Computed example of a mutant assay.
Amino acid sequence: MGSPAGPPFDPDDPDRERRERDTEPIPPIGPDDGPGFGRGAGLGDGPSLSDDVGYGPGPGYAGEGGSGRAWVRDPEAGYQQPQITEEELAGLRVDASGMPTGTRRVMPLDDEPSPLAARYLFPTERFRGEWKRHWIYIAKPLLIGILATFVLGYLSGFLAGRDVGSLTTVAVLLWFLLMGWVAWQVAEWWYNRFILTNKRVMVVDGIITRRVAMMPLVRVTDMKYEQSPAGRALNYGTFVLESAGQEQALREIKSLPRPNELYLRVVEEMYEPQAVEARLGKEADEAKADDGA
Rank of each mutant, 00 (worst) to 15 (best):
A118S: 14
E112F: 07
T103S: 09
E125K: 02
M214H: 10
H134Q: 11
R21N: 14
L262D: 06
E20A: 04
L121E: 02
R162A: 14
Q83C: 06
L155Q: 15
G63W: 01
A287K: 10
P82F: 00
G180S: 15
D95I: 01
G281S: 11
K224Y: 05
R193A: 06
Q246F: 03
M1T: 11
S255T: 09
L217Q: 01
P25H: 07
R219K: 15
T169V: 07
V218G: 08
Y137Q: 12
P229Y: 13
V267Y: 08
F127E: 02
L109V: 01
E247D: 14
P75V: 01
R126P: 01
A213T: 10
L173E: 11
Q185M: 06
A96S: 12
L143A: 12
Y61G: 04
R251T: 08
M215G: 00
P47R: 04
L250Y: 12
V201R: 05
L280D: 02
L234P: 05
Y191G: 05
V201I: 13
G281R: 14
A117F: 01
E20Q: 09
G165H: 09
R39I: 08
E247G: 13
L173T: 04
L167G: 08
T209K: 12
E269A: 05
G78H: 03
G206D: 08
Y154S: 09
R251M: 04
L173D: 08
S97K: 14
L264K: 10
R279S: 11
G245E: 00
T103Q: 09
P7G: 11
T23W: 15
P28T: 13
L152K: 06
G91T: 13
F176N: 06
S166R: 14
A118C: 00
P141C: 00
E76Q: 08
D110M: 13
